[in-house]
């Protein structure tokens, strides 16, 4: 068969259509990828990236010599793991319960209400948290602790409470989103299984354990693995807004993304911030590749590529 000649003229309109998107991708995604060399330079803003002298791995050496760095990476990874496993367990449980609600009207109402926090920004969420925790005018100190005769707690400077506060805030805001993902996969299951089990006299609990959970196991595992791929990326807004970027709390609240912001914008420290940021993108890339390969083996349709 002779090779078909490409008739370029037919394709020109498509390239023109793709052009705005391509240009945006180059500006927003590909140019920053080359910006990674920043981390290997001793940046002199007046000379730009290309004109600045090379620094080799010096910036990374500095970064990992700092004691706080390990703590920051630890915070990032541990909060991610905690949020992922606790969040998944709660979301699956809520999705199953939501599916048990007989009244469609009530089911819809619950779903709508639980999703509301997800629609609001973390800035708004920080105002809500402040209304509860503010030392002088917060509702917890004034309406709960004081009537009980307890001393007011200075929430915004006591480190020990923050792992709980952050976890609670994350769950409060995101659980509706996670629940809906699992709920939609439960709703998609065939009713036949449940009818047959019910005729055989299986209780609800037995149906949940032996039909629902095994059938949505695939979705759960895929979601968990894909999220593990983002283990070094944290939700900047959560960790910046909720503790109000309070330095006194950094040892338990600062994650890589917050550190990058503070180093770059507050301390104008290009060396440290670019090293941390590049560390994050390279380690993140490796994790995405690994987790995607695992998902591909397990459930090809859900793999990214």
């Amino acid at each position: 068969m002779p090779k078909k000649k490409i008739r370029w003229k037919n394709y020109v309109p498509f390239y023109i259509m793709a052009l705005p998107g391509i240009i945006y991708m180059i500006c927003n995604n590909y140019m920053p990828m080359f910006g990674i060399v920043l981390a290997f330079k001793k940046l002199d803003v007046t000379k730009g990236i290309l004109g600045s002298p090379w620094a080799g791995f010096k910036n990374f050496e500095f970064l990992f010599k700092t004691k706080a760095t390990i703590g920051i990476i630890r915070n990032t990874v541990l909060y991610n793991l905690l949020f992922l496993f606790l969040g998944t367990a709660l979301a699956v449980a809520l999705a199953i319960l939501l599916n048990e609600v007989k009244s469609r009207k009530m089911g819809k109402l619950y779903q709508s209400l639980i999703l509301i926090p997800y629609l609001m920004s973390w800035v708004i969420a920080s105002y809500l948290v402040y209304a509860f925790l503010a030392q002088d005018i917060g509702i917890i100190n004034n309406s709960i602790l004081r009537p009980l005769g307890q001393d007011a707690i200075n929430w915004y400077s006591e480190k020990k409470y923050w792992p709980y506060i952050l976890t609670f805030a994350y769950m409060w805001k995101n659980i509706g989103y996670m629940m809906i993902i699992y709920y939609s996969s439960i709703v998609g299951l065939s009713a036949d299984y449940f009818e047959a089990a019910s005729l055989d006299g299986a209780t609800k609990w037995q149906q949940i354990r032996q039909i629902t959970l095994p059938l949505i196991k695939g979705t759960i595992i895929t979601m968990v693995i894909l999220n593990l791929g983002r283990i070094v990326t944290s939700d900047f807004s959560l960790f910046y807004q909720i503790p109000k970027n309070n330095g006194a709390l950094y040892s338990v609240t600062q994650t890589l993304d917050v550190y990058v912001y503070n180093a770059l914008m507050k301390n104008s420290d290009f060396a440290m911030s670019s090293a941390a940021s590049v560390f994050q993108s390279i380690v993140g890339f490796i994790f995405v590749l690994i987790t995607n390969a695992v998902v591909r083996k397990y459930n090809e349709e859900s793999a990214l590529f």
Binding site: P32, M33, G35, S277
Partner: peptide, 13 residues
């Protein structure tokens, strides 16, 4: 979706 230059590079550009 797999790889990004990170926030600092993005900010610089």
């Amino acid at each position: 979706m797999l790889f990004s230059g990170g926030q600092v590079a993005s900010y610089y550009i």
